[in-house]
Design a binder for these strands. Structure first.
Length: 588
RNA sequence: GGUUUCGUAGCUCAACUGGAUAGAGCAUCAGGCUUCGAACCUGAGGGUUGGGGGUUCGAAUCCCUUCGGGACCA
């Protein structure tokens, strides 16, 4: 049992004794004591004043005395205004340390089967900075949910059909001369993306010519010959034309090779892929059922709608008058399919917050259709990555490419690693592995430390830092602990100590908060909570390191205790960072 | 126009979801390696939490209003 719950339990009993009133654990507010005050944990007594009918100070004093009586773990207490600061005995902390169990996954009686969807790229463009946030966030949330004791299936839905891929195909047929990624040496997704851009350039010119001839912009868009070609190709694809499907498959396979290379560098993967080419027909049957149930209605032109005005939303189109579906139609179908396939308890959709409305509508429709699983749906809505100039724009060439970004990070990492010169005795392969871990660590940490809900700023002019509140800092602290262990390998490391320093106590306290931090991060779907925890722990250890002797400690028990403490810190950091998708090097 | 979201130090982010004197990093300045790894540590300066009002013992956090940015829906 955690010290916090011990205190809460004692406080509930104390209130009963003192004031003869039953309170729930919600009414006992326990928080960490601010560093400028003496104590470890603090009870805020203001909420209890109505019960005690005494001043805050008196209430706190009474409560403190009673709790000290009830919980032997509490050694002393002091009162500042309405704040009851409780000090926990050294004995308790030492015992907590020797009986520490931070192994993952946590035991979870409410374990669930969850699907986490993230990345979900289009097949006409390479991945960019925005995808990077999505991928790091989704992958990390999936790992955190796993660590919290759930069963998790990682998935992506690949947008492999539609007019966008047809555009790339047209451009390649017209101007490709049969070249392939292997013939040009390009990464497949960049190769196909280049043809998409080529299409857009020519298409734009055609429109300008038409507009110069007096056509309005809206008509020019659809009348342009290239657009007509792409639309025709899409129709052929939908009709299953063999040659078209063949080319489509080939070009998509190039893209997948490229994506896989990037995913591999990112260190992420998926257990299951969904392809829109297979899911886009889903949902229509459900629309029929919904019509029969009267959840949906048909307009005169034959289109199908749902009226959500009573819920504060609008009317939403579900099936066009020509019977073709829209995004939300397939999302309905896909969700139902997934639930049936995996007996899921929930789906987490990692999608940018510009889709907030879409998911609100989607979940509401599923609810109205009577699917009880709608309660397990969660939209992990995250903010945009902005540049100093605002949003990334393809047309203005401000898109930050994911592969370029990694390459830059690796170059920076290689440079600073060379400057430090700590890896000189390693093989080239080992060295590159460390360089990669640091580069990816810096990038991932940079993105994952920010509260997902908030939009964040990325300045391409400034390289991502390796000092301060960063991934490499935490990796470095870990490396220090590993260095100690290397130097004492084979020694008898048993210890027995009676007293500990304030910093040692803080470290033990922090380490014991690890499971609660995981739970909190899982509950709020926020890797940022875990990222900041890791940083705090690393920083505390670094301060400890600066004013404590470890290997040179005056006494063997003290030395071995500090080594054990260092190991626990290192292990905890490694576990936490791994959940963020960040690997720890042994040296750096 | 309607809905929604955000605004915290020069910059990038925190603040245990309503708690104590709003904290870190970067940048700036001053110190600290002949000693376990300095990608580090210790310290200093830097804030009317966009502005105004309200609720509360207590507000960056909740409500109203206003200004400014973003997104979504026509």
């Amino acid at each position: 049992m955690s010290i916090e719950s011990i205190i809460v339990e004692a406080a509930i009993k104390a209130v009963k004794q003192l004031y003869n009133t039953e309170v729930s654990d919600k009414q006992i507010q326990v928080q960490n004591t601010k560093p400028e005050f003496e104590g470890d944990l603090t009870i805020v007594t203001f909420p209890l004043l109505k019960i005690s009918k005494k001043s805050p100070e008196e209430t706190a004093k009474d409560l403190g005395a009673a709790i000290q009586e009830l919980a032997p773990e509490i050694s002393t207490f002091n009162v500042v205004k309405g704040f009851l600061n409780l000090s926990v005995s050294e004995k308790y902390w030492l015992n907590a340390f020797t009986t520490l169990n931070n192994s993952l996954p946590l035991a979870n009686p409410n374990s669930k089967i969850l699907m986490v969807e993230y990345s979900s790229p289009n097949t006409n463009k390479p991945l960019h900075l925005g995808h990077a946030r999505n991928i790091f966030l989704g992958d990390s949330v999936a790992e955190i949910l796993k660590a919290a004791g759930n069963k998790v299936i990682k998935t992506q839905i690949i947008n492999d059909r539609g007019i966008h891929i047809c555009k790339s195909m047209i451009a390649w047929m017209k101007w490709g001369n049969g070249e392939t990624p292997s013939s040009t040496g390009e990464k497949g997704d960049h190769f196909v993306g280049r043809y998409y851009v080529l299409f857009e350039q020519h298409y734009k010119k055609e429109q300008q010519v038409l507009i110069a001839d007096g056509m309005v912009e809206k008509d020019a868009k659809t009348k342009a010959a290239l657009f007509q070609d792409a639309s025709n190709l899409l129709r052929q694809w939908e009709a299953g034309d063999a040659k078209t499907v063949e080319l489509w498959k080939t070009m998509n396979s190039w893209v997948y090779e490229g994506f896989d290379a990037t995913y591999k560098k990112f260190g992420v993967g998926f257990e299951k892929n969904y392809y829109e080419s297979q899911t886009y027909i889903l949902g229509k049957k459900i629309i029929e059922e919904g019509l029969a149930k009267g959840v949906f209605f048909k307009k005169e032109d034959g289109s199908v709608w749902i009226d959500l005005t009573a819920d504060g939303l609008d009317q939403k189109l579900l099936l066009r008058s020509d019977g073709t579906s829209v995004y939300i139609t397939q999302d309905i179908g896909t969700a139902v399919d997934r639930y049936n396939d995996y007996k899921l308890d929930g789906i987490v959709y990692t999608v940018m917050n510009e889709q907030d409305y879409h998911f609100k509508v989607l979940f509401l429709i599923l609810k109205k259709l009577g699917y009880s699983f709608w309660e397990g749906l969660y939209h992990l809505s995250y903010g945009m990555v902005e540049l100093p100039s605002g949003r990334m724009k393809t047309r203005e060439g401000t898109v930050v490419d994911a592969d370029d970004l990694i390459d830059e990070m690796i170059a920076t990492s290689a440079q600073s690693t060379a400057e430090k010169g700590k890896l000189d005795e390693l093989s080239l392969e080992e060295k590159n592995d460390v360089i990669r871990k640091i580069a990816i660590g810096a990038l991932k940490y940079y993105m994952v430390k920010v509260d997902p809900k908030r939009s964040m700023l990325f300045n391409p002019e400034e390289s991502i830092d390796f000092n301060g509140h960063t991934g490499p800092f935490i990796q470095y602290i870990y490396v220090r602990t590993r260095s100690l262990l290397r130097k004492t390998a084979g020694e008898n490391l048993s210890w027995k100590v009676q007293t500990i320093s304030a910093k040692e106590k803080e470290l033990i306290k922090k380490i014991t908060e690890f499971p609660a931090t995981i739970k909190e991060a899982a509950k709020l779907y926020s890797p940022a909570i875990l990222a900041n925890y890791c940083y705090d722990l690393a920083r505390e250890y670094s301060a400890f390191w600066a004013d404590h002797q470890i290997l040179k400690a005056e006494e063997i028990n003290t030395k071995n205790f500090r080594i054990a403490l260092s190991k626990a810190v290192g292990d905890t950091l490694a576990q936490g960072m791994n959940l963020l998708g960040i690997e720890m090097p042994e040296r750096m």
